[in-house]
Design a protein around this nucleic acid. Structure first.
Length: 826
RNA sequence: GCCGAGAUGGCGGAAUUGGUAGACGCGCGGGUCUCAAAAACCCGUUGGAGCGAUCCAGUGAGGGUUCGAUUCCCUCUCUCGGCACCA
């Protein structure tokens, strides 16, 4: 057998073609014995090429999937393209081409020139592309299901408007007051939009977190994002106008005897009716000012409290206190009831507002016996205490008082216990071109009517002028042939909705489509979904924690509730790859430090590149990309190649008698404990995505093999030759396949089971004892395994190095950890 | 401000239930080969002292528990991520 040089280019091309030809990675979806659905977040073609972050994500996910396959699972690892959306469209605009041209070209490049070169187990026969009418037909169908479930609402609301992208954004797409895509300052705009009532699922989204194996920090992000607050809505009647009242949501009703004012959000619907004629001008001016504020640079906005008195007062039924009603922009219209009752003694914001407005401060909680007047912001503490100055609540600990007063308020009909969420409804309208048209039709007579399912898809027309014009309506509004249609109900003339849906809707259900791509007449086949869903492992970036990963769960829950399947969480297990940075900074086009993997893959091979990336650090932490390190992986593979394929050793494999031990070699047989320990370590690490330590132990095995291979018996050598390629297979699929073939085993290594280790082989015949004196290491020496404790102590005390330390001292105590350590305390 | 994660050689990072800190790799130093260089291979590589055996110090800082602490507890500093006037 000729070894030949390790020519990664030839090897990788050879096996990629072979695997493709043999459909090696296409599983039988109808007859899985042990299914494993390994889902990887699909890319969006918003740049000319994939970068190393993608390779990192896919490399790790694929290595894990390959391990699962070698455990006997039928692993389904599909891939696709999230090709609709603002990100892809903005890219097309930047390079001054049409998305209809750019997107297919990028997808082709991603798939053919980049992803297929990675040597991943992607099943390309089930590729999904969200811009394909056969796909977005069903995205529109999902919209109709939402409508059917009563979760679609059209409302005119102040929404986040990006002047750069000339469209509305979801709350999740606004980062620090900027558009997450183009970083323009987001403005407030009053527009009629389509919303999904995700807030109705807030409790479900929270509760579901307890039953899925997702990272705790991801769950914490979602919990915080959903922001459940339990409290009470208290109604305060307006003084002198018994028919009018204001509802304030509070989580701290036990402090309500200390309430001295009420503040409405500037957008609160009652502002006009509560403003007295004398205050009208001031309130009007203030509201104008607030409107402009959102257009101003956010960083210049001071957190100083501002506000204007409406002239009205309301009554606190608890103590008949007369409280001025103000308008202030620190109160948010979309949280709670859009109005706040101010207790300045026990809330820092209320305190600041009271100081600004000259409103009195009444202390109602004592802390550690302190009942003094509150005169400074630092004294406003919001944690536990005992109630004072509050009538029947006096002397109660705050927890008890909270329940008592809520009972009291409810009994008297002054309020109702309630729950508020930070989560907003999901605004899915986009005034853009590159997305699935929202399947709604407006008829003068019938109002808004959904497009009948049989008429799907509502095709996105191919138009040349696709740029948004900022009119508040999308580019489709300019296409008369698209807009003009017939009402599905009365068949009179009607107009189509011209907005397209948010990209996050495209990706909120894609996991359902992959196993059913060949079914043109339905979004997913019941039998296939039953066999393959939910997803067993989902891998992707944590940046989607409060966006895609919430919508993904929400849409699954709704379809479940409509009876389409019996699971209500899309993915049982989720893990995130860490962020790959370059020179300590996040990779970005603007920094110019984006690393394209193609060059490295050509030079070092996909095997070495994948392995290097996974070796950088813990997979879930990511790390700094440093191209010098690739050499390490490359040298490792060269070494393995040489050791396993050295002709003399191969000859040894063939000759039954084997070669005599090399000169100077030990008489006794070399133990394969290292091999078995590596099998155990690599398997355990792969299961936990600890790729870096798995690779380190493989490298150790390589070093050991290089030193010891000359001492192995033919049987041991056979075991090594059949084990090592299988250990390498998840990390370096091409190299492993080539070694497997060259060593004379039958195709394919990727149909083999992962090696099994023998517990008894792990045990060496001797162990190294660490000797400590007063906890400091002073000596180490080797002892036989079956030695008794008293013999260990005796042997230890005889050691010269130990005696030196014990000289003239009394041994107080001896601690022995079997087969590990002995500590002599003097 | 609140929530979450973290801090270990020149660098990336290892270290089962507390039990030899620095595995593995990069880089660096020395050597072999070469007319020479690169590559490859071999040896060394936490800091300090010593020719050396060896000794001392050492896992962000300070304290504590323990025979023994990177690991557990308390206090503090800094870094990163998320949220941010959310009542």
């Amino acid at each position: 057998m000729r070894k030949g040089p390790y020519d990664h280019q030839a090897i990788e091309q050879k096996w990629q073609e072979r695997w493709d030809h043999d459909h090696l990675y296409e599983v039988d979806l109808d007859h899985p014995k042990k299914k494993f659905y390994n889902l990887i977040m699909f890319p969006y073609p918003s740049a000319a090429a994939l970068h190393v972050g993608h390779v990192y994500c896919y490399g790790g996910a694929d290595t894990y999937a390959r391990y699962k396959r070698m455990q006997g699972y039928d692993v389904f690892e599909p891939m696709g393209f999230d090709a609709f959306g603002i990100h892809a469209e903005n890219y097309a605009i930047t390079i001054k081409e049409h998305p209809q041209v750019v997107v297919p070209r990028n997808v082709e490049h991603f798939r053919e020139d980049q992803m297929k070169k990675l040597g991943a187990m992607f099943d390309w026969s089930r590729e999904v592309n969200t811009t394909d009418p056969d796909y977005y037909k069903w995205t529109q169908w999902v919209f109709l299901q939402m409508h059917r479930a009563g979760l679609v609402e059209r409302k005119v609301a102040a929404v986040d408007w990006c002047p750069g992208c000339k469209t509305v954004l979801a709350n999740e797409q606004v980062i620090d007051g900027e558009c997450e895509r183009c970083h323009s300052q987001v403005e407030q705009k009053e527009l009629a939009q389509w919303f999904f009532k995700i807030t109705k699922y807030a409790d479900r989204l929270l509760a579901g977190l307890d039953k899925i194996d997702w990272p705790e920090r991801t769950k914490a992000l979602q919990k915080h994002w959903i922001g459940k607050k339990v409290g009470i809505d208290i109604t305060y009647k307006i003084d002198g106008q018994p028919d009018k009242s204001v509802v304030c949501f509070t989580t701290r009703p036990e402090t309500n005897f200390g309430a001295t004012f009420v503040v409405l959000a500037p957008e609160h619907p009652f502002v006009d009716s509560l403003t007295t004629p004398e205050q009208r001008a001031a309130v009007g001016a203030y509201r104008e000012l607030v409107k402009k504020k959102s257009d101003m640079d956010r960083t210049e906005l001071s957190k100083e409290k501002t506000g204007v008195f409406t002239g009205s007062y309301c009554i606190n039924d608890l103590n008949s206190a007369r409280m001025p009603v103000w308008v202030g922009d620190f109160v948010l219209a979309h949280f709670g009831s859009g109005a706040v009752v101010g207790v300045p003694a026990h809330d820092i914001r209320d305190f600041e507002f009271a100081q600004m407005a000259g409103i009195p401060v009444i202390r109602v909680l004592e802390k550690d016996g302190d009942r003094s007047e509150i005169t400074k912001g630092e004294q406003v503490w919001e944690d536990a205490g005992t109630v004072m100055n509050s009538g029947f609540l006096d002397g109660m600990p705050w927890e008890q008082a909270r329940e008592a007063i809520m009972d009291h308020i409810e009994k008297n009909g002054w309020g109702t216990r309630t729950v508020s969420f930070r989560l907003h409804d999901w605004c899915i309208s986009r005034q853009r071109y590159w997305g699935p048209p929202i399947p709604m039709i407006h008829c003068e007579k019938c109002g808004w009517v959904p497009v009948p399912e049989k008429d799907l898809p509502v095709l996105l027309p191919k138009i040349v002028e696709y740029l948004p014009d900022g009119s508040g309506r999308g580019p489709l509004a300019r296409v008369e042939s698209f807009v003009k249609t017939e009402c599905p109900v009365c068949h009179g003339p009607a107009e189509r909705e011209t907005d397209v849906s948010d990209t996050f809707l495209d990706s909120a259900w894609y996991q359902l489509r992959y196993p059913s791509t060949e079914f043109g007449e339905k979004p997913f086949d019941d039998e296939r979904s039953r066999k393959w869903l939910p997803v067993d492992m989902y891998i992707g970036g944590i940046e989607h924690a409060t966006m895609h990963l919430i919508y993904f769960r929400f849409v699954t829950m709704v379809l479940h509730d409509l009876g389409y399947f019996d699971f209500d969480e899309p993915s049982l297990k989720l893990r995130h790859q860490g962020l790959i940075i370059k020179d300590g900074a996040k990779m970005s086009k603007s920094r110019g430090n984006v690393v394209n993997p193609d060059e490295y893959i050509r030079k070092f091979g996909a095997d070495a590149f994948r392995t290097y990336m996974l070796f950088i650090g813990p997979y879930e932490d990511g790390g700094d990309f440093n191209d010098r390190g690739i050499l390490g992986a490359s040298r490792f593979f060269e070494k393995v190649w040489d050791v396993l394929l050295t002709p003399s050793l191969s000859a040894k494999l063939a000759s039954e008698g084997g070669l005599p031990p090399l000169a100077g070699g030990p008489e006794t047989k070399v133990s394969l404990a290292k091999l078995h320990a590596t099998v155990k370590k690599v398997g355990d690490d792969l299961e936990n995505l600890h790729f870096n330590t798995a690779i380190a132990s493989l490298m150790e095995l390589g070093n050991w093999l290089k030193e010891s291979s000359g001492y192995l018996s033919p049987d041991q050598w056979k075991e090594v030759c059949s084990t090592v390629p299988r250990l390498l297979a998840p990390f370096a699929p091409h190299l492993a396949e080539e070694l497997w073939e060259k060593l004379g085993f039958a195709y394919s290594v990727h149909n083999q089971l992962f090696p099994i280790y023998d517990e008894s082989e792990l045990v060496e015949s001797s162990f190294v004892l660490t000797v400590q004196v007063n906890g400091k290491v002073r000596d180490t020496f080797t002892l036989p395994l079956d030695i008794t404790q008293s013999d260990v102590e005796k042997a230890t005390l005889e050691r010269e190095k130990v005696q030196k330390w014990l000289e003239g001292k009394t041994v107080k105590k001896v601690i022995y950890v079997p087969r590990k350590l002995i500590n002599i305390v003097i």
